[in-house]
Amino acid sequence: MAVMMAFEARFNSVYNALQSAVTAAGMDCQRVDDIWVRDHIIQDVVSLIYRASIVICDLTGRNANVFYEMGDCTHAW
């Protein structure tokens, strides 16, 4: 499972709750800042989206990057 959301400290509790629920359901949960493999973060975002069977997008705060990533999800399937 992939989570697209802002990387702000005020949202850490939301991500932690998602991780706990997903783990309890027997799945893995990742946010792109858990990866940092490639030189450009957008490459990691696209890779994470395409590998995920489920993508959760938290639009709280109207983060433009998350809106972009959500749009990317619609092209992945």
Rank of each mutant, 00 (worst) to 15 (best):
V66K: 02
D39Y: 14
S13T: 08
V14I: 07
L18E: 03
R38Q: 14
R31A: 00
G26C: 05
A76T: 08
A21V: 12
F7D: 04
M1V: 14
S20A: 09
S13W: 09
A6R: 05
A25K: 12
N63Y: 10
G26P: 03
T74A: 09
I35Y: 10
I54P: 04
R31D: 00
M27K: 12
V66A: 12
R62A: 09
D28H: 07
H75S: 12
S47A: 12
D34A: 04
N16I: 13
C29R: 00
H75Y: 10
I35M: 05
Y68C: 06
S13Y: 09
V55E: 04
D33N: 15
Q19M: 12
S53A: 13
D72K: 14
F11I: 01
R10V: 10
V55A: 04
L48Q: 04
M4Q: 12
A24D: 14
R31I: 04
V32I: 06
T60C: 03
I35C: 10
A17S: 12
I42V: 10
V14W: 14
T74Q: 13
I42R: 08
H75E: 14
E69Q: 06
N63T: 06
N12H: 12
S53F: 10
V22S: 00
R38D: 10
C73R: 00
N16T: 07
C29A: 11
G26R: 08
I49H: 01
M5I: 07
N12C: 11
S53V: 12
M5T: 09
A21C: 07
E8D: 10
T60L: 11
A6P: 03
V37N: 13
A64Y: 05
C57M: 08
M4T: 04
G71V: 11
V45N: 02
Q43Y: 07
D28K: 13
L48H: 01
G26F: 06
A25M: 15
D58S: 09
A24E: 12
L18K: 00
D39R: 08
D58A: 05
C29Q: 06
Q19S: 11
M70Y: 15
L48M: 11
N12S: 08
F7H: 06
V37P: 04
G71E: 03
H75I: 13
I42P: 01
R38T: 10
R10A: 15
L18T: 01
V45C: 10
A17I: 04
A52P: 01
V14L: 06
Y50R: 07
F67A: 06
A2H: 00
R38V: 04
W36D: 11
A76F: 10
A64W: 06
Q43H: 15
C73I: 08
C57L: 13
D44C: 03
C57W: 06
T74P: 01
M70C: 08
Y15F: 15
V55C: 07
D33M: 05
T60A: 11
W36F: 05
N65W: 03
Y68N: 09
W77C: 14
A9S: 14
T23F: 12
V14G: 01
E69Y: 02
A52H: 02
G61S: 05
A76S: 10
L48K: 01
L59I: 07
H40R: 03
D33L: 05
F11L: 15
M70S: 13
T23W: 08
G61H: 03
F7Y: 15
T74N: 09
W36K: 15
G71Y: 03
D34F: 05
I49N: 00
A2Q: 02
V55W: 03
A6Y: 00
R51F: 07
D58F: 07
V66S: 03
A17E: 10
M5A: 08
V55R: 02
